[in-house]
Design a protein around this nucleic acid. Sequence first.
DNA 1: TTTTTGATAATTTTGTTTAAAAAGTCAGGA
DNA 2: TCCTGACTTTTTAAACAAAATTATCAAAAA
Lengths: 205, 205
Amino acid sequence: MGNVADQQDIKREKILEAAYQQFLHYGYSKTTMNEIAGALSMSKALLYYYFPDKSQLYIAVTRKLADDYLKLLDEKLSKTGDLKDAFVCQIDTHHDFIVNNYNFFDFIRLNEQSLPDTIWEIVEHIRQTEMTLLGNAIKTDAEKGNISKVDNPGEIVDLLLDALQGVRVGTMGYRKTTFPKKEHLEEIHRKRLLLVDIFIRGLKH
Amino acid sequence: MGNVADQQDIKREKILEAAYQQFLHYGYSKTTMNEIAGALSMSKALLYYYFPDKSQLYIAVTRKLADDYLKLLDEKLSKTGDLKDAFVCQIDTHHDFIVNNYNFFDFIRLNEQSLPDTIWEIVEHIRQTEMTLLGNAIKTDAEKGNISKVDNPGEIVDLLLDALQGVRVGTMGYRKTTFPKKEHLEEIHRKRLLLVDIFIRGLKH
DNA sequence: TTTTTGATAATTTTGTTTAAAAAGTCAGGA
DNA sequence: TCCTGACTTTTTAAACAAAATTATCAAAAA
């Protein structure tokens, strides 16, 4: 039977899900704690029983989202063959992740200058995990002899991820904010695929 | 002898020079038209005789700066040997340009969201000229047979410039504004050199 | 006629107040 | 322990005033 802790976790999950839907639909600042509570037919005060404040709630949703993304990426990567496939898989999965949750991230877009450290920790955790996963892919490919031996796979992956980031920024024509506009996402995606193609050939001996 | 138009041009140059020094030292918003006039021992009203307003003055200085940069880059590139040298030359020259004028660009840093179109035209002019110069370098190298034939050198250069941009953004750890902090410049420089190295090898057949 | 200026007008920035809305708290009920 | 309605505190925004700065102009100087 479900004990007390289980029940709490289930409720927390329900709150996270409802909050996620609201944030996704209206963005952070336009959704009120009252609305989230209303969607769950519970009182606003109860939200504060489970989460210390609004930003912590948002961060908890973000963390869950990130974990889901990394889990999915790990699964997909384990099914890829060579290094090229692995990078393309990362790019595709990441692309879908951003597209599907675009509105959710408006909090990050609007507060880029002063985001709580916890958000950056999540972003860095994603980056770190991606680096580990893709770093392993490089090592595997190097052992197979498909590419020349690399001293520091981590640095190479880091560099490629930076370069991919740049395709995003550059594609926006240097204008406006750092966060990509929806209409640019497809072009970003296309250019990234091209970059990977060249980059990988640069690693082959 | 100097005619009237010459005299005007000389005065305009002097104003541009004084304004450049002030902007470089104090940044855009902290320098007043009074201070620029003071540095030239002339009245503020005279500045408005030569330039329509403060932002136009700033833009004129920026344009001059950009022209000087592109002229220097062109000279330097004409002395380079292979493609790798050319890209490294571009990266070095650009790096110096940013470092030496860092404070001057605080107007751009602070107003990233809403810059006048003229500024963006200058930025795009720089990008366009860089693309032409480096595109020619690629074509030359392809004719020599150093690298495999490329259909569209422009697209390749564009992609590389985007990637280099990304090294900049990525190096800042995803944090804060789009404009690089001074303490990151050296690291950006180093990583860009590495990226070029790999990228060029990717183009070789 | 062109260049220059002091005085002045117009605009932008900065700071303050105030009211509404939303966040966050708490004593007490189930 | 979980939950709520009523309450307090904080944030947001709009409106306004004061100060600083940009921009103009009639008239003087070259």
